[in-house]
């Protein structure tokens, strides 16, 4: 019920945007720019690049608003644009997001590093930032952007199982980083 009314409010603003209303465009920007900027930040790990992605994504969203069919919420539609633009930005600076040796889905031992951990958001966030590009992208998409492995496979052009194994490696690496920083502190 709550979700329904929220979509209705958005639908009106989206319609005004379609008619080229600049104020409606700003309303959507205010509503989504921060969340979308952080999505891009997690994928690109670069402030300037994320701004470029955000600009590019909003412009392309306003231009292609006619292709948005209100099947999903405007937010998730926009998020997909931001994710694709961010992944492209990372691809530009590095040809392979997922290294070839990692593409073979192998068994990763499920060592649980997290049993004793008292996590803090800031600590996890910093650790994610320290991950290499390939790991960080898969982990962010799965953990924070809520994509499943099939969707991640689509976005990155890899198989679902590769996404799964890549996530496991990334997760393991992340916990290692957190343990290191914790013991160092």
């Amino acid at each position: 019920m709550e979700k329904g009314t929220f979509q209705d409010v958005n639908a009106k603003v989206v319609q005004r945007c379609r008619e080229g209303d600049n104020r409606a465009q700003y309303e959507l920007y205010k509503l989504y720019s921060k969340a979308m900027f952080n999505v891009s930040m997690r994928i690109t790990n670069d402030y300037a690049e994320s701004e470029d992605v955000l600009q590019e994504a909003f412009i392309s969203a306003f231009k292609n608003l006619h292709s948005y069919k209100a099947e999903a919420s405007f937010g998730s539609w926009l998020k997909r644009i931001v994710i694709n633009a961010s992944v492209n930005a990372v691809r530009k600076r590095r040809s392979e997001l997922v290294p070839l040796e990692d593409r073979i889905a192998g068994d990763i031992p499920d060592e649980e590093y997290d049993d004793d951990a008292e996590w803090q958001v800031e600590q996890v966030r910093r650790a994610i930032q320290r991950l290499p590009d390939g790991y960080r992208v898969v982990l962010s998409l799965y953990l924070l952007e809520g994509l499943d492995h099939a969707e991640i496979g689509d976005v990155l052009g890899i198989s679902e199982s590769t996404s799964k194994s890549q996530y496991s490696r990334a997760r393991k690496k992340l916990l290692e980083i957190m343990k290191d920083t914790h013991s160092m502190a």
Partner: peptide, 21 residues
């Protein structure tokens, strides 16, 4: 989830988007 979004774009970015549009 909310606490992970801690970055914000520069406020001028909207103006840049407007001119580009």
């Amino acid at each position: 989830r909310e606490d992970f979004d801690m970055f914000e774009p520069r406020p001028e970015l909207w103006q840049e988007i407007c001119t580009e549009l």
